[in-house]
């Protein structure tokens, strides 16, 4: 089966794609950190961050629709939190909404706070999705390994990514097999039970597969350490990119802090 891979656009070749994965990871982390550190309710320091991301986005020629779709996928959690702020934050009331005996109020401070959080969320997600859109997952793993992220963690991530699709395939096949027989109809209790069954079988199958994979690894001499060759080296362009991005991030944080000290 065909899935929209997480790194679907990562096989292109633009200056953004050609940058070293370790360099990109550090740069993106710096941008995210700076965004998070901007003081509450202040929008101005976020402008240069957005500009930098927009520039990177343009260079990488990542389709805007794709970016928006990715953003939509991760947004429910953030939105659920953000929508509460206008109602909970005390301050100057802009909207009154009588409901029965009580009253629902929306405050200006609440709206500002919600907008600010939403902006930060969008910027951070944008940064992360741009990293994934311009870096193949395997290269990203190499980058993380070179950044001395513990090997176990990198291995876990690599395995997760490698087998996520296999498990998804299995799940989709089972779902189709079930739908082919019940047509998505039938009493909801039965449907719920069959769905739970699919999840259970999927779990058992994954368990079996994990065992088989381990056996296949052991058959080739695996003794607990993964000897993956390290590839890639930082070039001048990569250093330049990291330096500029980190400098920008630092400027944002320091500038924001000084302006409101």
């Amino acid at each position: 089966m065909h899935h929209m891979m997480l790194d679907h656009f990562a096989n292109r070749s633009t200056p953004a794609h050609r940058l070293d994965p370790a360099a990109k990871t550090v740069a993106i982390l710096a941008v995210v950190l700076a965004t998070v550190l901007v003081g509450r309710d202040r929008f101005l320091p976020l402008v240069p961050v957005a500009a930098a991301l927009a520039a990177y986005h343009a260079v990488s020629r990542t389709p805007v629709r794709y970016a928006l779709r990715r953003l939509a996928v991760v947004s429910p959690l953030a939105v659920a939190v953000v929508v509460l702020f206008p109602f909970l934050e005390p301050g100057r009331v802009v909207i009154r909404w009588p409901v029965g005996g009580a009253e629902i109020v929306v405050t200006e401070e609440g709206l500002v706070r919600a907008g600010h959080l939403l902006a930060k969320f969008v910027l951070c997600s944008w940064a992360a999705l741009l990293l994934l859109a311009t870096t193949r997952f395997q290269d990203l793993m190499q980058g993380l390994a070179r950044l001395r992220v513990p090997r176990v963690l990198v291995t876990q991530l690599a395995f997760l990514y490698r087998y996520l699709w296999v498990v998804m395939d299995e799940g989709m096949h089972m779902r189709m097999a079930r739908a082919a027989r019940d047509g998505g109809l039938g009493p909801w209790r039965l449907r719920f039970r069959s769905r739970a069954g699919v999840v259970g079988v999927l779990f058992l199958r994954s368990w079996d597969r994990a065992e088989r994979i381990y056996r296949a690894m052991t058959a080739r001499g695996f003794d607990g350490t993964l000897h993956a060759p390290r590839r890639g080296r930082m070039r001048v362009a990569d250093w330049l990119f990291v330096t500029c991005t980190v400098a920008l991030a630092a400027a944002v944080v320091v500038g924001d802090h000084l302006a409101h000290a």
Binding site: M141, R162, R209, R212, M217, R220
Partner: peptide, 27 residues
Amino acid sequence: LGLVFQDADDQLFMPRVADDVAFGPAT
């Protein structure tokens, strides 16, 4: 004893084909 398992998805666990082929010799 070079064992090739039935389900190739079990055998190919590295992110890149070359890394996977290198796994045995490197180990």
